[in-house]
């Protein structure tokens, strides 16, 4: 465990908590893509099945349980408790265009052709593109609440920190996971445009709105 990995995990946790608190405090999930949140719940579910087969550490197990629980809580708030505030009309990204190719790819390119390994690979590939419905929604409405941009910032920062962690681990531990690294690079690239807007607008106190 190095500092980049730890801050990456904490950044991921911060993102998840920010989103939950935003929805809970405002009693509204306006501007949030339920589809992205469903995809993240699917990502955590398929990735953390090893909770049943192996024990890494107390830290590892607790974080996995927290991520899974929070992602299901978020989905519950969006599709059940605060369903009336869910902006389904603008959440129109076709998720099958992500899930089907990603499913196919995870069968073709994986470390080992076993059920859990394929599901883990599927979750890695899916996570890299799971934010697209949310970004699509923002591009459609042309704006995002500031708290939503903080959520996206921490969510993007997490994988960027993991990239540094992988460079670190490659040099100091000889650890290298090509599938995770390539997917992590793709994932981080998808956030670059948003990072630019976050730094140039949100951090200067302006609302994130896109030119018409």
């Amino acid at each position: 465990m190095n500092i980049f990995r730890l801050t990456g995990d904490l950044s991921h946790l911060a993102a998840i908590i920010i989103l939950l608190l935003k929805i809970w405090k405002t009693r509204s999930c306006a501007g949030i893509s339920g589809k992205s949140q469903l995809l993240f719940a699917l990502v955590f579910t398929t990735r953390y099945l090893d909770l049943f087969t192996s024990f890494i550490s107390l830290y590892n197990t607790s974080m996995k349980l927290i991520y899974v629980a929070c992602s299901y809580a978020t989905v519950y708030l969006i599709y059940m408790k605060f369903k009336a505030t869910y902006d389904g009309n603008h959440d129109t990204f076709r998720v099958e265009f992500l899930v089907v190719p990603v499913g196919g790819l995870s069968f073709l390119v994986n470390h080992d052709f076993s059920p859990l390994e394929i599901l883990w690979t599927f979750s890695i590939y899916l996570e890299s593109v799971a934010i697209l419905p949310q970004l699509f929604m923002i591009s459609k409405t042309g704006e995002a609440e500031t708290i939503t941009t903080h959520y996206l910032f921490f969510l993007g920062l997490y994988r960027a920190l993991y990239l540094i962690n992988w460079i670190w681990r490659y040099y100091f531990e000889g650890f290298f996971d090509l599938i995770a690294v390539v997917a992590g690079v793709v994932q981080t690239i998808l956030y670059c445009d948003f990072f630019y807007l976050y730094v140039t607008k949100v951090l200067k106190g302006k609302k994130l709105s896109l030119p018409a």
């Binding site: 090893d50 192996s54 590892n60 991520y67 080992d112 076993s114 059920p115 390994e117 883990w120």
Partner: peptide, 10 residues
């Protein structure tokens, strides 16, 4: 085998 290689990352 119904298991995956050990993954220590989240």
């Amino acid at each position: 085998a119904f298991e995956m290689m050990e993954k220590d990352e989240l």
